[in-house]
């Protein structure tokens, strides 16, 4: 199954909807898309992975790279994922401590916005 990456603006956040398989072959496509978004000034990303069927270490590397990139612009990267087999990949690699992972896009947007407001007032 091919990888599909689309993005839209929602409540001041850029929601990146990813579906299909993220592996050593398709991960470069996701990396390019994330790089384009950050390059175009989208620094608060919500990556919706509900449609992702498979994720390997290359895909994890792309997400970590995306996180580093947005953080260098004081941005954020939140994930949306409820699929047990994908969550397991984050858990095994310890990346559940690195990425905020939410059940829904609405939850992710709310958390991302709240964190931003907390930073602004501190």
């Amino acid at each position: 199954m091919d990888l599909s990456v689309t993005s839209r603006e929602e409540s001041g956040r850029t929601v990146v909807e990813v579906s299909g398989e993220i592996d050593v072959y398709t991960a470069p496509t996701l990396r390019e898309r994330l790089n384009e978004l950050v390059g175009a000034g989208h620094h608060h990303l919500v990556v919706d992975m509900e449609g992702v069927e498979f994720l390997d270490s290359t895909g994890l590397g792309v997400l970590v790279g995306g996180l580093k990139r947005v953080r260098s612009h004081d941005g954020s990267l939140h994930l949306v994922c409820q699929r047990e087999k994908i969550l397991k990949v984050f858990r095994i690699t310890g990346l559940t401590k690195v990425f905020p992972i939410h059940d829904t896009v609405a939850d992710a947007i709310a958390a991302s916005t709240a964190a931003d407001e907390a930073n602004a007032t501190s």
């Binding site: 390997d56 270490s57 994890l60 590397g61 990949v89 095994i92 690699t93 310890g94």
Partner: peptide, 12 residues
Amino acid sequence: TDPLSMALMAGT
């Protein structure tokens, strides 16, 4: 030896 890859193999 990418540590993420090695961790995934060891973990699965």
